[in-house]
Design a protein around this nucleic acid. Sequence first.
RNA 1: GCCGACGUAGCUCAAUGGUAGAGCAGGGGCCUUUUAAGCCCUUGGUUGUAGGUUCGAGUCCUUCCGUCGGUACCA
Length: 491
Amino acid sequence: MENKSLKQIIANRHEKLDKIRQLGVNPYPYEFNITHSTLEITKDCIDQNVSVAGRVMSLRRMGKAAFANIQDEKGRVQLYIARDDVGEDNYNLFKLVDIGDFIGIDGIVFITKTEAITVKAEKVTILSKNLRPIPDVKEKDGEKYNSVSDKELRYRKRYLDMIINPETKDNYITRFKMINSIREFLNKNGYIEVETPVLQPVYGGANAKPFKTFHNALDQEFFLRIATELYLKQLIVGGFEKVYEMSKDFRNEGIDRSHNPEFTMLEFYQAYSDYNFMMDFVEEMLKKIAEDLDVKKISWDGNDIDLTKKFARKTMDELIKEHTGHSIDLTDIKAVFDVCKKLDLKVKKTDSLAKMIDEIMRRKVEPNLINPTYVMNHPVEISPLAKVNRDGDTDFTERFELFIAGMEFANGFSELNDPIDQRKRFEDQSAKKNSGDEEAFPVDENFLEAIEIGMPPTAGVGIGIDRLVMLFIDTRWIRDAIIFPTLKSLK
RNA sequence: GCCGACGUAGCUCAAUGGUAGAGCAGGGGCCUUUUAAGCCCUUGGUUGUAGGUUCGAGUCCUUCCGUCGGUACCA
């Protein structure tokens, strides 16, 4: 795997490591006292004594003196190391420094002939010896040369990506701030954060293929959760009135630019409220996030999105009429089928009504929902945990999905709390599963028993956190939002 | 899953089917205000893998591995 060229470089670094030790210096010392980060070295610091540390990213040696640039978490600063300033012994030690090493510098800030703010070293300390080369990226006028273009390397070795492309870190800082903002919002509103099992004996709460695993001592199969819904609702049964969980969920499905097998989901449930309340609440939450991140308009994938305006709320039949021009009775399967055909959609006569409606929504409506839009009132068949409409239309549910820039960001509903109806819905799911629908979920008797004990009227929402990050960092790739995305192992 | 593209030195890239190259990094020199530092010299390759076609394969064909893009699934 490692060929001669790389071996040669590594062997050379090991030799230098030995030489450092022979000089009586520990190449991996325990601490270094820093007075300034690289970005804190400014004109105001001129003539001041400072101590800075970071990874050596470039070296320009000129015999008895050298310039170097070190990089820390926030940025870079230039160093000037001259033999006559640091002394012969320290300069000999500095000769053993490579690009990639961590070093610490005690020195004085000055400005070079070319007006670059620079730390003139009085002492160089090796903080960690690099034994494996990092790609050497040159930069001029903000343009990078020899930058790593191999995406595989960037994903497999994210640390290299972060070293070479420090702006990569910004995505994860935004992610951190966003999650903080969400927690703040929910906590402020009286929510309790809980943790429910990742290992579940029966999976449910979403339609997805699960990962299976096995507990040896219990001699029992478990599933990695595909959702937290059924546990969180049990907590509402138990007496909590506002709960949330920020969870890693796992779905054993295809990987593409907006799907990763493990992903982060926020689910929250509030007793005594319905989906209308939750639409307001989610809207308020997103506006707060945008405010906390200081974002007013989002330019995402070429679309300008205005988060400050009121989110649109439209039922499926309204949206279908608006985007296809066809006004149809969504309970009339023949009418829906005919419209599908007129729209050139791939549907079969044997498909279910829900599938046909979904096909229209997915192909003709959702891609056009650029500014935030709540899609409401989904067919009951594809909403097994949602209450049917209160106006008596039992084919459709009090459910909403939030679309922004053609992508789904949230899914919520007035939670079904009628135990008898809920059992029937589970049985429908189970029947589908038995007839080959791999994404249908099985009957969860424990959950049904809890619902029989009684759950108050409740509304709940799930929000895909990774996708929300994608929105705020302006990327179409979930791999930019997940720091270590799932990749196939090399054999 | 399907379709397509790609895989050459540590990194970025060359090479009509005809001797595998360059820049940077690495090594040896010179060089005390450079910044893609510069100048001289220099090491480094089973061209992802295994086969095949051919006098001759980085290049053409097939297998496998991996990545990317699209598509399907993921309401």
